[in-house]
Design a binder for these strands. Structure first.
Lengths: 338, 338
DNA sequence: AACCCCTTTGAAAAGGTTTTCAGATGTGGT
DNA sequence: ACCACATCTGAAAACCTTTTCAAAGGGGTT
């Protein structure tokens, strides 16, 4: 039972297909009687317009593409949820495509998505602007989330990585910490760089020179936090406070600390980043910087829809920076002996 | 610069559009020289076939729909990731649509997805088979994940909720617990019912009659775990072990326990469900039942693709039940005084 | 040299919709 | 009774591709 077409409706209603189209899209006036007949016929046949035919003509897909490097953890769930909510409200679907870490995968994905979406949301902090250039030829509008678009004509919605990191570091300094370490995010990731900058900035203002051996390369995962922190605590002298790449990384570091016999926050203060819901329920509840993920998602969709409506006019790219809020909880305390 | 069509390629190569199509789809033999000219022209113009036109003709969208009640937490991230990986390998995109809790929203979503996807993955444990009936008229194949499809012609991939719960309860019994409570998942959710059944089964086998006041209605969230557990621990007599709806719920319950001055596992054993990565990093690491989410996702996609290829033949629905594995960690111990 | 068959090619149709254009119908004014 | 005009309707084109069908051309065989 292949489904009804506009022809079937027209036939059943005894009108032309043009009239059916007009009634269903409310695009021109139609006599009351015919309108009624059309609506009845459409209802009876369970008619729904074929999206492919519509797209072919109108060039609108009512889908938005979402390009993500990977999907893991609560952060992405929340982001995806807010994107979907906003998109759905506007009558769009989300076409997602993940696992694009390198330029070639990225280009491939973008090509596949071509003509399949009306716009693109891209989150790829590890992608450099030069590499992101492959998107520049996209015919659809593009909005970047937490991704560097220096020199590219894309709107961006970033969160204040530097400011958040600066505020977290300041918090530790105020508690009296002088020996602060950091597990930074992956090399080449813009957000990780910005967070490191905030760290350095706060330290510099306090007149403290950071120890290079306490600037550790990590990743946004539990495992990375654990693996990187473990050897650190085996050293005779280690920091009394630790900034972590994100909340997961912090959870890993805390576990390593526990295993090394360190109490958090008595012996060691730990802070995360992202402010995931579950950090309120860790032991101890984590001090972290809350990223308003919902706001990020909604803003991104809203910008994208604007661009879609206006066409890709030569509109100077919007650069949104959403603030992050430090949540002081129980994983931070003055250093031991103070 | 609206992009090139097959006509442009044909013109530039000096052949007919049929020939271009044949070369690009490798669907018939074409002289070497013409083939070369076509490929060059296509390359030069950056030609990519228009998916809408293709879909209109072939009736294949190369997209799969994913219908979820909500998206939250690591579980969904992981599920979505495995679905996307499997789909991408097969050349499909994922069109996701979330937040469908009630039948009407469900029907609306299904209608919107009609003709837009080649198949549907549905996870909606709270949807009863009668309500899921609205999908029965779908022209595309449907695969259910962790959802009851009793009497419906859909393949299902469920995990062993009952078995997992049974095994967790047995574990607690073996440790010597007699006073075991449970925070069950939402009313009407099939998976929650099954887990409760497993709980009852293990208790019955041990000759223990569960106390009704220790069977608590909860949800799959941190907050619910916390809110439900809090009054429980305020009672003069409370269980020495607690099964929770899932890992998040368990984390909330543990927090409530801590606040009530109870040590986990010394005074209270707690178990979760799902086996999320982060449960290894909670304090104490959580005893839980690991659901092989990756396997679930891959199996579901694989089944769906089979159905898409074979057509919706009258094939008896597959009923996959993937086993869950109990991970014994540090949140469980013998009851106090044993 | 004639015939047949096989390979290669292009023209055209089909898929389902929206939209333009022109025709038909009906109304009001003179 | 006639004309101008507004309103409503249908035919046809356009969107871009795949596929069928028939024609054309070439090579081998008798």
């Amino acid at each position: 039972m292949s489904s009804a077409t506009i022809r079937d409706v027209a036939e059943r209603a005894g009108v032309s297909i043009s009239t059916v189209s007009r009634v269903l899209n409310d695009t021109a006036r139609v006599t009351h009687t015919k309108r009624k007949r059309v609506l009845e016929a459409a209802e009876f046949l369970g008619y729904a317009p074929n999206p492919a035919a519509r797209t072919l003509l109108s060039k609108q897909t009512s889908s938005l593409g979402v390009l993500l490097p990977f999907v893991s953890g609560e952060f992405f769930s929340e982001l995806l949820h807010s994107l979907d909510t906003a998109a759905q409200d506007a009558g769009y679907f989300l076409l997602i495509s993940t696992s694009h870490r390198h330029r070639d995968e990225f280009r491939a994905a973008r090509m596949m998505l071509e003509k399949r979406v009306d716009g693109l949301i891209v989150m790829a902090p590890e992608l450099r602007p030069r590499e992101a250039q492959v998107l520049a030829s996209a015919s659809e509008p593009v909005v970047f989330i937490n991704t560097d678009a220096e020199g590219l004509p894309f709107d961006t919605v970033n969160f204040d990585n530097r400011g958040g990191s600066y505020a977290l570091t300041s918090h530790l300094l105020e508690l009296g910490h002088c020996n602060i370490g950091i597990i930074r995010g992956p090399d080449g990731a813009k957000d990780a760089d910005q967070r490191l900058t905030g760290f350095h900035l706060a330290l510099a203002e306090a007149g403290i020179t950071p120890r290079p051996e306490w600037i550790l390369m990590g990743e946004y995962t539990l495992e990375a936090g654990y693996e990187v922190a473990k050897p650190l605590f085996a050293q005779p002298k280690h920091p009394t406070a630790l900034l972590c790449a994100n909340d997961y990384c912090a959870a890993g570091a805390i576990r390593a600390a526990h295993e090394a016999g360190l109490r958090v926050p008595d012996d060691l203060s730990v802070v995360g980043f992202d402010g995931l819901p579950s950090t309120l329920y860790t032991q101890p509840p984590l001090t972290t910087a809350r990223v308003p993920i919902n706001l990020v998602g909604h803003t991104a969709i809203s910008l994208l829809l604007d661009r879609i409506d206006e066409g890709v006019a030569d509109h100077t790219p919007a650069r949104h920076v959403v603030p992050v809020e430090v949540l002081v909880r129980a994983s931070t305390a003055p250093p031991p002996g103070v």
